[in-house]
Simulated scan of single mutants.
Amino acid sequence: MKLSYTVHIHETVLQWISAHYVIVGNETADKLAKEGSKKDQQSSSTTYKEAKHIIKQYQQRKWADQHPTYNKCDPYYELDRSEQVLIFRLSTGHNRMNHHVFTKFKIGSTDQCPCAAGAMTAEHLLQTCPLYKVLRKRFWSQPTSLQNKLFGCLDDLRRMATFARETQATT
């Protein structure tokens, strides 16, 4: 005896249409929603891979729109990860130096540099701290702006990262 089965597959589409109670223009919105619900709904199945690709493209476009000054040729992106982190921490002030730790986390007794000549900040460390005067001279024979040290060319950025590592003040 041979049995055969017939399977019928039906597709059901649910569409949620929000109510617009006590909202300006709700009559117009309700009318448009009702019209839309009566129209044939497009059936489209998207694979996981396609959905992922669409979302990724959308996020990349959104990010690019929000960061119009981004330049992928910026020398910062040619540094290794540890150099990028070091420069980022110094340029934003979010680092382990006394000023940030004391003012943000209330850790320690003061924000002063061990040299006692000012608050221990990136600018102080890189520009004026007497403890690192000789080391600064070794890295920068000529006076160099803080802007150039933190945002200059690739050589400037590498020099600055090496200087900061040698001071051990940021770790």
Rank of each mutant, 00 (worst) to 15 (best):
I9H: 08
H10V: 08
K39A: 01
Q15E: 15
K38C: 04
L14F: 15
K39E: 03
L14Y: 15
Y70W: 04
I55E: 15
V24S: 06
S37H: 02
Y70G: 00
N26V: 01
A33H: 00
N26D: 03
Q42T: 07
V13T: 10
W16T: 12
C73V: 08
Q60N: 14
D40N: 02
K34H: 05
I55K: 15
L14M: 12
E50D: 14
R61H: 08
K39F: 00
Q42A: 09
I9L: 11
I23Y: 04
Q59F: 10
I54M: 13
I55S: 13
Q42K: 11
Q59E: 11
K34Q: 05
K62N: 06
T69W: 00
I23G: 01
L32H: 02
L14E: 15
C73D: 11
T47N: 02
G36L: 01
V24N: 05
S37C: 02
D30L: 03
I17C: 13
I23C: 04
V22Y: 12
V7W: 05
H8I: 13
H67N: 07
Y21A: 14
L3C: 07
H53R: 15
V7Q: 08
I17W: 14
N71P: 00
Q41P: 00
E50W: 02
I55W: 14
A51K: 12
W63H: 04
Y70T: 00
D30S: 04
A33D: 00
Q60L: 13
K56C: 11
V24K: 09
C73T: 13
V7T: 08
